[in-house]
Amino acid sequence: MIDVTYLKRLFLNRREDLHLRLGDMGDLLEYGNPNRKDVIAFTQYALELAIAEEDFEVKESLFHLLMNAVTFQGAARKVEWDPLANVLPTLDDAILDYALSILGCSKNRKFIKVIEPYLHSPTENIRQAAAEALEEINYNKEEC
């Protein structure tokens, strides 16, 4: 179910299998046909949780969920991604890859200056993710 209330309950009653439940929700975003308005609210709330999350496995699951919302439900241009842009320097490379892709999919030119420094990352996949994100913003007209 793609619902903010359900997501809140999952985090209030946190269990060992939380990351698996988030994976199931990611599958719903990928293969389901949820209400667009619910997806936007859900994605905005999931972003708040993802930024605050300290458990790496859960954080990574939340970012995968966000990427599915962007890729399969067209949430990229409907969510406010400034909080994500603000925490980029604090993210682990595995999560930074998702974050750069999400910002690129937003097509928002204000994120260019935030993404550009990652073109010089010592990590190849981060340099590549940054380059692709900038290409999405600058050249591609279609949704991610």
Rank of each mutant, 00 (worst) to 15 (best):
1 M>L: 11
2 I>C: 11
8 K>T: 10
9 R>H: 11
9 R>L: 11
12 L>N: 07
14 R>N: 01
14 R>W: 01
16 E>Y: 04
18 L>D: 00
18 L>K: 00
18 L>S: 01
21 R>M: 12
22 L>Q: 02
24 D>G: 12
27 D>T: 13
27 D>S: 11
33 N>Y: 07
33 N>L: 10
35 N>D: 15
39 V>T: 04
39 V>L: 10
40 I>N: 06
40 I>Y: 02
42 F>M: 09
43 T>V: 12
43 T>H: 10
44 Q>F: 07
46 A>W: 03
48 E>K: 15
51 I>Q: 08
55 D>G: 02
59 K>Q: 15
60 E>S: 13
60 E>F: 15
65 L>D: 06
66 L>N: 03
67 M>V: 07
68 N>R: 13
72 F>Q: 10
72 F>K: 09
73 Q>A: 07
75 A>M: 02
77 R>N: 08
78 K>D: 13
80 E>W: 08
80 E>A: 13
86 N>E: 15
90 T>R: 13
91 L>R: 00
91 L>Q: 02
92 D>S: 11
93 D>R: 12
94 A>C: 10
95 I>C: 06
99 A>T: 03
102 I>N: 03
102 I>F: 02
103 L>M: 08
105 C>S: 12
105 C>P: 01
107 K>Q: 14
107 K>M: 04
109 R>A: 15
110 K>P: 01
110 K>A: 12
111 F>Q: 04
112 I>A: 06
114 V>F: 05
115 I>N: 04
116 E>H: 05
118 Y>Q: 10
120 H>S: 14
120 H>T: 08
123 T>W: 10
123 T>P: 00
123 T>M: 09
126 I>D: 04
127 R>N: 02
127 R>H: 03
127 R>D: 04
128 Q>L: 13
128 Q>P: 00
136 E>M: 14
138 N>Y: 14
141 K>Y: 13
142 E>Q: 10
144 C>N: 08
